[in-house]
Design a protein around this nucleic acid. Sequence first.
DNA 1: ACCTTTATGCAACAGTGTTGCAAATATTAA
DNA 2: TTAATATTTGCAACACTGTTGCATAAAGGT
Lengths: 139, 139
Amino acid sequence: MTETPAQYLHHHGLRKTLGRELVLTTFLDQSRALSHGELNTLLGDQLNRASLYRVLQSFEESGIVHRVPDDEVSVKYALCSGACSSEQHHDNHVHFKCNHCGETQCLPEVKLPKVKTPDSLKVESAELLLRGYCRHCAA
Amino acid sequence: MTETPAQYLHHHGLRKTLGRELVLTTFLDQSRALSHGELNTLLGDQLNRASLYRVLQSFEESGIVHRVPDDEVSVKYALCSGACSSEQHHDNHVHFKCNHCGETQCLPEVKLPKVKTPDSLKVESAELLLRGYCRHCAA
DNA sequence: ACCTTTATGCAACAGTGTTGCAAATATTAA
DNA sequence: TTAATATTTGCAACACTGTTGCATAAAGGT
């Protein structure tokens, strides 16, 4: 990302605010998918809990982040990569979640092959969630 | 399933109880993935809310259901198919969730191709979540 | 029928997600 | 720069989700 966070927000039609810059830089720092709870812990009292929900909502609506379905209590969010919001809006995401440390990372380099599905379904997007052990936690 | 719900429970090492039979038959009736909230609504006061959590926990531990990651508030659960708990325990699930009605169904007939992933990750299972419109809601 | 083990209901609680409103901040226009 | 407008924030209250301890009830084995 060659832009500053403020520019990045502006290019997505969002006002530059303290909360949004905090959340955006946190995503860039962590480079992994984060839940509301994790962000809330990382940000401490720098940003109100309810405001954080609203920041995430605005990020999702403007295509800065996408939801990552999770099998734990709460959903996670990940920064959209370049491929995500450009050209042919890229709706196929591959994520990896470690069974040990619980961290989820995006795998933008992994290509998701088309699968054959029943004709009765109109499939519009796909999300592949891989599980196992990350480099750090491999048994 | 040729067995009765009671036999099915027994074969999975669980006692036959009213709550478990209710939940199991509800899954069979609905033949789709259900959240705790949905089950709780369907069962009304036939089963206590906390007990329902414990029934789902026992079902998951004994391989009767598996979790389906969801991007809404709560996780869903789906009955494991024959393929799931037999032979080479089948950990690759494909689900379809309708963007309109929100229902999630298992697609056991869809085969999930192996994807190439970074060597640093030990992938043990995969979950593919397709989204779009079901036969009923297709625009 | 008795005994042991396990499941249930109830109640209380912590965490998660939502909303209304007043105050603060960002943007636009003058 | 200032004023006017639109948006965002913090706060507080609330509903929903998930967990736990404990007494009671039910299941399975003897």
